[in-house]
């Protein structure tokens, strides 16, 4: 079966003064139409870089060293800039973290909203204006006509993020990449924006890659979850399994670190230590220095991706121990 998006063994390297450092190590995942995949991880885990690479928008010193990204069966790695440009904003769109800086301050909302329409659909200025008015209404902006002639600084953060969404969806893409679109917004607006993205996903039947570090957001929006740590995928599974039966110690740590408002006596749990830098080569499992369950083998050998069940996998030696226990019990 052809996936909407299939990423296989993606490796992304950055050329720095010190040499090449790997920001994304051997990442694979797939996404179907109408499905939401959440990429979860701390800052520096490579989740944003992974999402940028899908559009070929890596920074100047970043390269896809290995792997393949297939969109509807079409290979995107190594594709010419010109061909990628035709996909961007048209078939694959992106929304960004900071609605405050993602809109050009010197142009009106209408001017910027019309850009994708003029670029990809060759609409005339009047048609584009009409269409962008409809788009603004679609993303729930009151008085769209008035808003078209306003500048970004005249709108609130939530409104600007809606404008960004309208811009991304102008050409009705089949894949939407959202890089922490709610992080900079307050909670009520966050919920509204999540609902909006979810509604539009249903309407357009898009696949959504949603990058976040907020487990609350994941619970709200995800179908599938991919947890990343230091450039690697440590656990994947559907949202229910990840929340109910997390296998990897890092995922468990992340879930335990979500504060519970109802429990006043709760001490906020933390994962001790901090994310290793992309340059650090760590022998064995990349998480073992911070892992409460680290065993000897974790320090020596890198764990392979192990299947917990169908559609649920974890990159952890504990998995083998579990399997071993099970097999000894049965024998």
């Amino acid at each position: 079966m052809e996936h909407l998006l299939q990423v296989e063994n993606l490796v992304i390297g950055f050329r720095t003064a010190k040499g090449t450092s790997q920001a994304v190590r051997d990442v694979s995942f797939s996404l179907e139409e109408g499905e939401t995949l959440c990429i979860v991880g701390e800052s520096g885990s490579g989740k944003s870089i992974t999402s940028l690479s899908l559009l070929g928008l890596l920074p100047e010193n970043g390269d896809i060293a290995k792997g393949s990204i297939r969109f509807k069966g079409e290979e995107l790695v190594g594709k010419k800039e010109e061909a990628l440009r035709k996909l961007r904003g048209n078939k694959i769109s992106m929304i960004f973290q900071e609605p405050m800086t993602a809109l050009n301050p010197v142009f009106t909302i209408g001017y910027q909203l019309q850009e994708p329409l003029i670029i990809h659909q060759n609409l005339s200025k009047q048609e584009a204006r009409k269409r962008s008015m409809a788009l603004l209404a679609e993303v729930g902006i009151p008085n769209p006509k008035e808003k078209l002639d306003q500048y970004p600084h005249e709108l609130s953060g939530g409104m600007r993020q809606r404008v960004m969404i309208a811009m991304a969806l102008a050409c009705e893409p089949s894949l939407l990449i959202a890089d922490e679109p709610t992080t900079a917004l307050d909670v009520t607006i966050q919920a509204q924006i999540l609902d909006l993205i979810d509604d539009l996903k249903e309407q357009l039947g898009m696949g959504v890659v949603f990058v976040t570090h907020d487990m609350g957001v994941v619970a709200e929006i995800a179908d599938k979850v991919m947890v990343m740590y230091a450039g690697e995928v440590v656990e994947t599974g559907d949202v229910k399994t990840i929340f109910e039966d997390p296998q990897h110690p890092y995922t468990k740590g992340l879930l335990a670190a979500v504060p519970n408002v109802d429990d006043e006596t709760q001490e906020l749990s933390i994962i001790p230590g901090s994310m290793p830098s992309v340059d650090d080569e760590i022998e064995g499992c990349r998480f073992h220095p911070r892992c409460p369950f680290a065993m000897d083998i974790c320090k020596q050998k890198k764990p392979p991706v192990m299947n917990v069940s169908e559609n649920h996998s974890s990159r952890c030696w504990l998995q083998e121990v579990n399997n071993h226990d099970k097999s000894t019990v049965t024998s």
Binding site: L55, L57, R85, K86, L87, R88, G89, N90, S93, M94, F96, Q97, E98, T101, A102, L103, N104, P105, V106, F107, E115, P116, I119, H120, M164, M167, A168, A170
Partner: peptide
């Protein structure tokens, strides 16, 4: 970020330079 955003909607380099960077 708005320049990255413009690239993400498929604007060409010429378009970005003349229509989005120069006016700034």
């Amino acid at each position: 970020e708005y320049i990255l955003a413009m690239r993400s909607i498929g604007a060409s380099n010429t378009r970005i330079l003349l229509k989005h960077i120069l006016p700034n």
